[in-house]
């Protein structure tokens, strides 16, 4: 599997245009294109609707049939801010960034060890990492809760940092491994022949080559950490809660007001949607533990 996910050369499309025998069949591809657009927009529509509703007044949000035309307002976002989303955003940001940094600090050397300079039993270690993703989190939550409670770390943001690091580490190790494997072996050989020590060849040759991979891995970790809810809702309360927890609390305190909820949901989802759009070419590689590029 060496083929990258980049777009295929346009050869098929072009040759079709030139083939006279196919001329009668033009409607087929056009129809498929229209269908694809409809599917795409249809699938995206709930999100579009969420964003639109976030800019409505409550009165515009509760109409039947739903209204498409309205005067946009920032009122709902102001309400969300004034109801104190700030600390939650900061908590989410802190847990996400710190856990991602720790994941990289642990995963990059580990991935290097299992790819460029493999030792015996490497395969076993790699599958151990995957297997930790297979065990249901819920089976661990009870002892984690008890331990965290006993050491007084309940409702502490560092608890989430540690757990998110563990949660993302297997994915990051596998993903970084697949990037390290793309580094030609000769590059390291050339560096060692040119007189570079292990550390220097790592810093000067390997890291610059895998840096796009590190960026993609970080983005994937950011997405998962930001979206995490299970640990957050069970282990945090007032001080360390993250944005998804805020969202749940927001319903309870504000009731089911569509426009406000949509504004809150939009703010909650926006950062990772953007991160995901940026990382979309590497998304598959990360989610499949590097098995698919």
């Amino acid at each position: 599997m060496a083929a990258p996910t980049t777009e295929r050369p346009a050869s098929t499309g072009d040759t079709r245009e030139l083939a006279p025998a196919r001329r009668g069949n033009r409607a087929g591809p056009a129809l498929l294109t229209v269908l694809t657009w409809i599917v795409g927009i249809g699938f995206f529509f709930p999100i579009l609707w969420m964003v639109l509703t976030a800019f409505k007044k409550e009165a515009d949000a509760y109409t039947s049939p739903p209204s498409l035309f309205f005067t946009p307002t920032l009122e709902q976002f102001e309400t969300v801010f004034s109801s104190g989303i700030g600390p939650y955003l900061l908590n989410s940001l802190f847990a996400t960034v710190m856990s991602t940094v720790f994941v990289l600090l642990l995963a990059v050397p580990a991935a290097y060890a299992v790819s460029l300079r493999p030792v015996k039993k490497t395969q076993d270690v790699l599958f151990f990492f995957i297997s930790t993703k297979m065990l249901p989190v819920v089976a661990a939550i009870v002892p984690i809760y008890v331990v965290v409670n006993n050491i007084g770390m309940l409702d502490n943001i560092w608890t989430l940092v540690v757990l998110y690091t563990a949660m993302n580490l297997p994915i990051a190790v596998w993903m970084m491994r697949s990037f390290f494997q793309e580094v030609p072996k000769e590059l390291l050989e050339a560096a060692s022949m040119d007189g570079a020590s292990l550390w220097r060849s790592m810093r000067e040759v390997v890291l610059p080559v895998v840096s796009p991979g590190i960026a993609a891995t970080s983005l994937i970790c950011v997405i998962f950490a930001w979206n995490e809810f299970f640990f957050a809702v069970n282990l945090t309360a007032a001080t360390a809660a993250t944005v998804p927890v805020f969202l749940v609390g927001f319903i309870t305190s504000e009731g089911l007001y569509f426009a406000k909820l949509c504004a809150a949901a939009t703010m909650c989802a926006l950062p990772v949607v953007v991160a995901g759009w940026i990382a979309q070419n590497k998304l598959v590689q990360g989610l499949s533990f590097g098995a698919v590029k």
Binding site: F229, T266, C268
Partner: peptide
């Protein structure tokens, strides 16, 4: 457009 639902925070 098609991948966006996957990126949305599950709670949202």
């Amino acid at each position: 457009l098609l991948i966006t639902p996957f990126l949305i925070t599950p709670v949202a």
